[in-house]
Amino acid sequence: MLAYVLRRLAGAVAVLWAAFTVSYLILYLLPSDPVAIMLDQGAGGERVDPERVAELRERYGFDQGPLQQYVTLLGRTLTGDLGTSISSGAPVSGLIADAFPETAKLAGLALALALVAGVGIALLASWTRAAWLRDLLLALPPLGVAVPGFWVGLVLLHLFSFTWFVFPAVGNEGFASLVLPTVTLAIGLAAVVAQVLSQGLREAWRAPYVETAFAKGSGRARVLGAHVVRNGSLPTVTVLGVLVGNLLGGTVVVETVFSRQGFGRLVENAVTTQDIPVVQGLVVVAAAVFVLTSLLVDLVHPLLDPRVLAGAHGRTGGGAR
């Protein structure tokens, strides 16, 4: 067990380091010149002072070779310093720390709502013997996956803020302002949870051990509760890390639609101003959230599936995106 935990920990650290490296490769080594991009943004199209170019190059370390640059950046990141924003000059870690609590609230609520709705749909569809109800319930997830999040947000805004005046349209003030963004963010996630879980439950129902349980004289409720749910939920548990990562990605759109401050809005601003240090910091933080969630899942997984420790199962965290 200890060896298993240590192995997972080491894996998590390695993935985090690699995520940093990938974001570095994308942001700093692609052909576009970061300093040119920065100055274009800052100067608003005026001619730029060559002295300022040199100064910026030095400040961000672009005068160094790629490898040296990478090592410098990595060293700084390890001490918790993610650099400074180009557009505002503020430290990136401070920006993220300020933005994170609002987004954590939103994402946490959305995750809870999505799990309740997704698990509810899947369980009810698995439980019911009425074909029409099952068909209706199973038609929902494909629908939820297909609707664009930004569009759902706008439709909800139109209905609940501009037509019925139930919830505020924008801002971070109070619980009421969280309702529509939470629903918007949760729909896609709930659909994925419902899809993966109902697929897992469907397969579990077909497993021979279900027949064994029925042959013992167990009723449907008991078979579902004691065997089908435990086995059928394993695939959902393993994709939870990816789902939480996607949730964070989803906040970019949702916070933009509802004009909320937070992680997603920070991303949107940083990309729009091509603020490279901020974008990299955000990517690394998002990867860290994914890695932490996956680590938690990995640590809980052996309790749900004893075969994991025996090495009978593959690694977790992959699969659907």
């Binding site: 497993a207 021979p208 051990y209 027949e211 064994t212 349980a213 042959a215 004691a226 065997h227 435990r230 086995n231 394993l234 749900l304 599936d305 004893p306 075969r307």
Partner: peptide, 11 residues
Amino acid sequence: PQDPGTALDPV
């Protein structure tokens, strides 16, 4: 049942 490999619940 037929197949002892799958007829018991693995978890």
